[in-house]
């Protein structure tokens, strides 16, 4: 356990790899979301104990599969991208690095001077800019600090690209497939055991997003819609509800 915590804290260190920091934070968010959805299912009064026996493990398995695939895939990608970037830096000549790091340093200084998107928001103080200039530039040439900063940033930026690709594939492709298929399986199982539910109007089961809406009370808008029993009813415990 202590090792896991150590690893977690280490992965938050921005100086090691910002791609991995993003990956761990996103995976943690997904894990919390899956847990809180499953918890909401476990606490729900409208769900029978018998259903819970099936729904809670189903929710956990869905969450673990979703996060596991996303994490494994993205971690490999970040490692690969960072290695490629290291190689790419080796390929660059010293002149190239000097030229590019000078450009980079100048851009960074301008960014801090002008603030967020040139709006002046989050603008840095003149002392900060002065200190930045003395650290990064000397006689119009980049210092060793600036060169190292540029190299580190290229590697770290490649990791960030991998983390972004992983996040896109994870949230737009892996999650919908796992969520929708598992919801279908849950729905079919409940329909088989309780065929009468098919004729019932849409009932929110343990869907926390429907509680408290509508002008006449808690569930009125839900009942008023009279939606048929559907995949959606049983999705609350999968990663479809709480998003972090």
């Amino acid at each position: 356990m202590a090792k896991v915590v150590d690893k977690l804290i280490n992965s938050l260190n921005p100086n090691v790899s910002s791609g991995k920091t993003l990956l761990v934070l996103n995976a943690l968010g997904m894990a919390f979301a899956a847990l809180s959805n499953t918890f909401a299912a476990a606490k729900d009064k409208n769900t029978s104990a018998e259903d819970k026996k099936f729904l809670i493990p189903a929710g956990l398995v869905t969450g673990v599969a979703n996060i596991g695939i996303y994490f494994g895939m993205t971690k490999k990608m970040i490692d690969g991208f960072e290695n490629s970037a290291k190689n790419a830096i080796k390929n660059l000549s010293d002149e190239d690095i000097a030229k590019k790091s000078l450009e980079f340093a100048n851009k960074q200084i301008l960014k801090k001077e002008k603030g967020f998107l040139g709006t002046g928001l989050f603008k840095k103080s003149p002392e900060y800019i002065q200190s930045m200039k003395t650290n990064l530039l000397k006689d119009g040439k980049p210092t060793e600090v600036a060169k190292q900063l540029f190299k580190d940033n290229v590697k770290s930026g490649a990791g960030v690209i991998a983390a972004f690709i992983g996040a896109i594939v994870g949230s737009a492709i892996i999650t919908p497939i796992i969520r929708d298929v598992s919801a279908y399986i849950v729905q079919k199982r409940i329909e088989k055991q309780k065929p009468h539910l098919q004729e019932q109007p849409y009932f929110p089961y343990f869907d926390p997003t429907h509680v408290g809406m509508g002008p006449h009370g808690k569930f009125d808008n839900v009942v008023a819609k009279k939606q048929p029993l559907s995949m959606k009813n049983y999705m609350a415990f999968t990663n479809g509800r709480t998003k972090i």
Partner: peptide, 15 residues
């Protein structure tokens, strides 16, 4: 390389 370096400081907001 410059495009990569520019992404380096991305936070969870960007993600």
């Amino acid at each position: 390389p410059a495009a990569c370096a520019a992404l380096a400081g991305s936070s969870v907001i960007g993600q």
